[in-house]
Structure formats: structure tokens, C-alpha cells
Computed example of a mutant assay.
Amino acid sequence: MRTLVRRILARFGYVKTTPLTQDEADHLIDVAHGYSAANAFVEAWTTSGLAYELVGYYDCTLTCSEAESMADLFRAFGYENTADDIIASHSESDECGDSHHSCDDCTSDDEYNTAA
């Protein structure tokens, strides 16, 4: 188990000169499991087409923070286009004043428009 943890550390350029404590090893294993689960989720969604198929249907049910979190997750694993599509789809249903809001009816002088 400690060999696995050392390999994970080495992969990220971190080399510890003293032996790991059991708590440190357990924490790193938890982090590795989280990373693996997140990677598996992203891979499953992108390779099966779910990311492209479902995001358009659920755009109006995601809050801004949920859309940003989902986009960040895909972006972290290299799926920039999917992340951009999530935000773009979400922004179509945002209301005036929401952070991703975009519509032709609002102008830059509109008091509710906060889109960058």
C-alpha cells in the first residue's frame, strides 16, 4: 500500500524523504479514490454521449453553482468543449441578473444584466 502511495506522490513530483504515517497514507488513498471516481464519471459521461445529450435537457434545472461545478469537473479532465457547452446551455435559461445570463433583450445598460 505504501508503494502505491509513493508512486502517486512521485507522479505529481512530490518525493517525501521520511516514511509516511498511516494517517498520511490513508489520506492519500482517499484522495486517489476520489480522483479515480471523478475521472470515471467524466469518462463515462463523455464516451457514452450523456454529457452532450443530457446537458441540453437539464440546462434550466441547474443552478449557476451547479453548472459551474459540473463544467469545472469536465474542464479538469481536459473536456473544455463539454465544459463550455454546459455553461452555454445553462446561460440560455438564466434570468436577468444571474451570473451567466445572456439574451438579446438585455443591453449593457440594463440594470439586471451582469453577464461579462
Rank of each mutant, 00 (worst) to 15 (best):
E66Q: 09
S69N: 14
D85K: 04
H100F: 14
S91M: 00
L28T: 02
F74I: 15
A71P: 06
L62R: 04
I86A: 01
A76T: 03
S93V: 00
F74W: 05
V55C: 04
S99E: 04
A32I: 04
A83S: 10
V31D: 12
V42A: 05
H27E: 15
A83Y: 01
G56L: 04
A51L: 03
W45Q: 06
A51F: 00
V55L: 02
T61D: 12
M70W: 05
N39Y: 11
L62Y: 03
E43C: 14
T61H: 10
S102Y: 03
Y52P: 01
E80W: 06
G56S: 07
S99C: 07
A25L: 14
S102C: 06
I29G: 03
A32N: 10
H100P: 09
D84A: 07
I86V: 13
S48V: 08
D59W: 02
H33R: 13
Y52V: 15
H27L: 15
A32V: 05
S102R: 02
E80Y: 09
H27R: 12
G34Q: 09
D98V: 12
E43N: 13
S102Q: 04
V42N: 03
Y52S: 08
A32G: 13
L62H: 05
I87H: 01
Y52W: 12
V31S: 05
D30G: 12
I87T: 02
E92T: 14
A38V: 09
W45A: 13
A25E: 15
Y79H: 08
F77H: 08
G49E: 02
H27C: 14
L54C: 15
Y57G: 13
C64E: 08
A25N: 09
D23S: 15
G78P: 04
T47C: 11
H27G: 04
L73C: 07
A83G: 06
L50S: 14
F41R: 10
A67H: 01
R75H: 12
A25M: 15
G78Q: 07
I87L: 09
L28E: 03
G34P: 00
A83Q: 01
H100G: 07
H33W: 12
C64Q: 06
T82V: 12
A83H: 01
E95Q: 14
D72C: 12
H33G: 14
E68S: 06
E24N: 07
E68M: 09
F74P: 11
M70T: 11
I29Q: 10
E53I: 11
C96M: 01
E92F: 07
F74C: 13
S93Y: 01
V42C: 13
I29R: 00
S93I: 01
T47F: 05
L62K: 02
A32W: 02
M70V: 15
D72G: 05
D23R: 14
T46R: 07
V31T: 15
Y58E: 00
F74A: 08
E43M: 09
T47W: 03
A76C: 00
D23W: 05
N81S: 08
S65D: 09
I86L: 02
I86G: 01
D23I: 12
V55E: 03
F74E: 04
H101E: 07
T46H: 08
L73T: 13
T61Q: 14
L73K: 08
V55F: 02
T46D: 09
G34N: 13
D26Q: 01
G34Y: 05
S91F: 00
E80V: 14
Y52C: 08
M70K: 13
G56A: 03
D84S: 07
E68W: 08
W45V: 10
S65A: 15
C60H: 14
S89R: 13
S69C: 10
